[in-house]
């Protein structure tokens, strides 16, 4: 099936591929480089690419001056918390829809999907007022709840598409073998579904980590995750490029790594199984 490709063609594609790849990746690379510069070097003309005085002082300063760690922890708690909560609600639902489908299952799934398409501004006002009146504004709990609900449809969908790939035969075999519903889920379904659950977890942590509508509108100093914290650099502090870069690098690095690991699942999750 495979034919050998002339080396010259291959080299040509290599050159173009790397050129385009580096171009697209450049803003991230530039941010990382700038984070190791002094503020003066950061805005120097002509720009300094590699041969400058490398320094880690921005990282120290970002942390000491602005409670960076607190916001980082907010991001962790909110993204991981909302994802786990979502999984807890979604696993039983996805199980039911995948293995005991009824005529209405499809409609329920599509309805869930349609809630994800509801633009957030459509419910901004009541959610804001409800949060204000119940003291949930600027709290981790409030934000976790909102992100759980806003990502729940995606979690259900991803799990559903994974569960559907587990042959129903195997679950029936377990039933014949005398496993109760609980044992069936614990001993048979869950071990087989672990890869799917893991990638659902990863993708949703990514989505929740980068969510930037609710986090910006419902938090202030206390519960602000990194998205909202970085936004505070939009005002005068944005002039401190090296510090902005250091804060940004810290904010995107963990999720970038997770993202690279889950790139395959991303396609399935974000297209609701329409492209595999």
């Amino acid at each position: 099936m495979a034919r050998s490709i002339p080396t010259r063609t291959r080299l040509g594609f290599t050159l173009v591929g790397w050129l385009v790849g580096l171009l697209i990746f450049f803003p991230i690379l530039w941010t990382v480089l700038t984070s190791f510069k002094s503020e003066g070097t950061a805005i120097a003309t002509p720009p300094q690419f590699l041969f400058f005085q490398w320094t880690a002082e921005n990282y120290a300063e970002v942390n000491s001056r602005s409670d960076y760690f607190k916001h980082f922890m907010n991001s962790v708690v909110i993204s991981v918390g909302s994802t786990l909560l979502g999984l807890l609600i979604a696993i039983p639902a996805a199980w039911a829809m995948a293995f005991a489908p009824t005529k209405r299952t499809k409609d329920v799934l599509l309805w869930m999907l349609s809630t994800k398409m509801l633009p957030a501004v459509g419910v901004l006002v009541p959610i804001y007022l409800l949060f204000r009146d119940t003291g949930l504004l600027d709290t981790r709990i409030g934000l976790t709840a909102v992100l759980t609900m806003s990502n729940l449809p995606i979690i259900v969908w991803m799990l559903y598409t994974y569960f559907r790939e587990i042959p129903g035969d195997i679950l029936e075999a377990a039933r014949m073998d005398g496993a109760s519903l609980a044992k069936e889920i614990v001993y048979v379904l869950t071990p087989m579904a672990v890869p799917g659950i893991a990638s659902t977890l990863l993708l949703n942590i990514i989505l929740a980590w980068n969510e930037a509508f609710w986090t910006l509108n419902l938090t202030a100093a206390k519960a602000a995750p990194l998205t909202a914290f970085i936004a505070s650099y939009s005002s005068p502090e944005g002039l401190f490029w090296a510090k902005l870069s250091a804060a940004s690098t810290l904010a995107i690095a963990p999720i970038l790594v997770l993202g690279w690991f889950s790139q395959r699942q991303l396609v399935r999750g974000l297209t609701f199984g329409a492209v595999k």
Partner: peptide, 20 residues
């Protein structure tokens, strides 16, 4: 009666072995 309580065993077309 539930499947497991009937005292029957079944061999499936796909074998339905537990892959893990």
């Amino acid at each position: 009666r539930a499947p497991a309580k009937r005292g029957l065993s079944m061999v499936f077309q796909s074998y339905a072995l537990y892959p893990h």
